[in-house]
C-alpha cells in the first residue's frame, strides 16, 4: 500500500458516499444515470468474487464489502425506492454496447484464461467505460447538479491517483499490471473534459453546464 493508492481508494469511497447521500437526503436521483450505477455494481460483483477465497487484508476485505453494499444500495434506491425521480428519458445509453465488446475483449486479452481471471479482466475493462452513460446523460441534459459534479470529480480522481500509484509501484517494486494500467488511462482520459469544466466552472461557484 502507498499513499497514492490510499488516497485513490478514499477518493473512490468519497464519491460512492457522496452519491448515496445525495440520493438518500434529497430523496431524488435526478441527473444521475442509473445505467452507470448498474455497471458499477456489475464491476464490483465480477471483481470481488474472491472476497471469501482470497484474503489480502482487513482493509481490502472491508473496502470490497463497502463498495459492494453501497453500489447495490444506490441501484436499489434509484430503481425501487426513488424510482419516480429517475430520469429514464435522458438515461438512454445502450449498456449492451459496452458490456458485449468488453466481455469479448476480456476473453481475448487477459493474464490467465480462468473464470476468476476473465471476470476480473471484464471488471477492469468495464470500469473504464462504465461512466459513459452518466457523461452521456449530462451531455443530453446540458447540465449537472453541483453535488453530482463533486461525485464525478472524486470518481475521476480515484483512477488518476491509481495511475500515480502504478508508476510508484513500478519504480519501487517493479510491479505493473498492463491491463489495469491501459484501462485506467482510458478511464481517466474519459473524464478530461469534465475535469476541465469542473475546474473552470464548479470551483468558481458556477453551475456545471455543457456548451449546448
Amino acid at each position: 500500500m502507498n499513499i497514492f493508492r490510499l488516497l485513490g481508494d478514499l477518493s473512490h469511497l468519497l464519491a460512492i458516499i457522496i452519491l448515496l447521500l445525495k440520493i438518500w437526503r434529497t430523496r431524488s436521483c435526478a441527473g444521475v444515470s442509473g445505467k452507470s450505477q448498474i455497471l458499477f455494481a456489475l464491476v464490483f460483483t465480477t471483481r470481488y468474487l474472491d472476497l471469501f477465497t482470497n484474503f489480502i487484508s482487513m482493509y481490502n476485505s472491508a473496502m470490497k464489502l463497502i463498495y459492494l453494499v453501497c453500489s447495490y444500495a444506490t441501484v436499489f434506491l434509484m430503481y425501487f425506492k426513488f424510482k419516480a425521480t429517475y430520469d429514464s428519458n435522458h438515461d438512454t445509453f445502450r449498456m449492451e454496447f459496452l458490456v458485449v465488446p468488453v466481455g469479448g475483449l476480456a476473453f481475448l486479452v487477459n493474464h490467465d484464461f480462468t473464470p476468476l481471471e476473465i471476470l476480473w479482466t471484464f471488471s477492469i475493462y468495464l470500469e473504464a467505460v462504465a461512466i459513459l452513460p452518466q457523461l452521456f446523460m449530462i451531455s443530453k441534459t446540458g447540465e449537472a447538479e453541483t453535488i453530482t459534479s463533486h461525485y464525478l470529480f472524486a470518481l475521476g480522481s480515484y483512477r488518476a491517483l491509481y495511475i500515480v500509484n502504478w508508476v510508484f509501484r513500478f519504480y519501487t517494486e517493479g510491479f505493473f499490471d498492463l491491463i489495469a494500467i491501459v484501462a485506467g488511462c482510458v478511464q481517466t482520459i474519459l473524464y478530461c473534459d469534465f475535469f476541465y469544466l469542473y475546474i473552470t466552472k464548479v470551483l468558481k461557484g458556477k453551475q456545471l453546464t455543457l456548451p449546448a
Binding site: H12, T114, N165, D177
Partner: peptide, 10 residues
C-alpha cells in the same frame, strides 16, 4: 477450482 492470479488492489 478457480485459479486466477491474485490481485491485491481494489
Amino acid at each position: 477450482g478457480w485459479k486466477g492470479t491474485t490481485h491485491d488492489e481494489l
